[in-house]
Design a protein around this nucleic acid. Structure first.
Lengths: 200, 200
DNA sequence: CCCCGATAGATTGTTAACAATCTACAGACC
DNA sequence: GGTCTGTAGATTGTTAACAATCTATCGGGG
């Protein structure tokens, strides 16, 4: 159901986000509009829009007339709160909404898990990060938590900036498979437990 | 120290945000770029940027090729979590940072409180909301919580969408005066208590 | 009577040119 | 030597024109 991003702006935004969270640029490095515009074969407009959006998302820092830079990862003492807030949102929403999941909702989760499996096998850090996020986002929306998606995404971006790379892809897949299995079995406490284990 | 927003985009963003949170447009109403561009006497570019930014902030909802609409307020069952998350952020940051407040930091808080007082006396709902947010944001940054500002602002926007209008301006001022007084007295537990009382 | 496709108008998406601002560097002045 | 000023280049901010997409309406066909 969720279509691919169709506008150039959305595609550019997605691409830059992937590169940044994959660690392609060191924190503090300025990103130039013309450079990205040339590389993607578009004009500066969509790149500007993407920079502004990613600045609002918290992975780029914006200064008037001076462009954007890759944001510093959050301070270590703030990380635990970031993780805690994300976990609270997911658990709060899932706890109340997982019971009303329909069959087609489950099918979409299966699809997301399959995407994650492929990404894990190819050991592509950026792809794993993206598919990981997509799995959780789908679950969040299906459980009626669309109100929280923007703030939840911000928290995820900060976590990605901090960790930058997870190494054990097999474990990543297993953790998500466990979440889906618990959902399928209809055991709410198991769902929440596997969620808490995964979000950290 | 915090300069006025200088770019046209920032001014337009601020103005539209004020109007929306003040309830100038009913939820669901589409906002047209040309209309706002004409009204502010600028071109569509900065208005577009403002729309995109406010969509990321969670005040407006964006659909490709169909523009933006005023976002529906969050569902009642989600509000308590939104308030709780905001309170956790403020208390977490202030608890650790309020002790290291310098004299000039205190002076800036006094300035913000004065702005709030003026807004309350003029009974201008949009101004009160803005000054209220500015007071808390200053406190947050001074206590070392700049990492959290974007996500915190999103939570505040959602709260404003839900409540839309506080009626007792005198009480609003008194609550913030109490926070500042507790900070001045150096009583951390009193600061946190007055904060919790205010954020709800 | 209802449904489907064509058309016109409105609206957003993208582009390229122009304006404003910032940064770096060189030379004058103290 | 150090500081200030001004100039040139680079970069972002803004604008207006053009392209793509969507919405509403009107006919024709079943």
């Amino acid at each position: 159901m969720t279509l691919l991003p169709r506008t150039i702006r959305d595609q550019v935004t997605e691409q830059i986000r992937d590169e940044v969270v994959a660690g392609a640029f060191p924190p503090g490095q300025p990103l130039r509009e013309v450079e990205f515009a040339r590389r993607f074969g578009v004009s500066r407009g969509p790149v500007r829009d993407a920079f502004l959006q990613l600045a609002k998302e918290g992975i780029l820092a914006y200064q008037a007339n001076r462009g954007v830079t890759v944001r510093q990862p959050p301070k270590p003492e703030n990380r635990e709160l970031i993780v805690s807030l994300r976990r609270q949102i997911e658990c709060f929403v899932v706890e109340r909404g997982v019971g009303s999941l329909q069959r087609d909702g489950l099918a979409r989760l299966v699809e997301r898990l399959e995407n994650l499996r492929v990404a894990c096998e190819s050991a592509d850090a950026a792809a794993v990060a993206r598919r990981d996020i997509e799995f959780h986002e789908t679950l969040l929306v299906l459980c009626g938590g669309e109100d929280f998606v923007p703030v939840w995404k911000w928290l995820c971006s900060q976590m990605l900036l901090a960790y930058s790379r997870l190494d054990d892809y097999e474990q990543v897949y297993q953790e998500h498979a466990a979440i889906l299995e618990a959902i399928r079995a209809g055991k709410k406490t198991a769902v929440l437990a596997s969620l808490e284990a995964n979000v950290q």
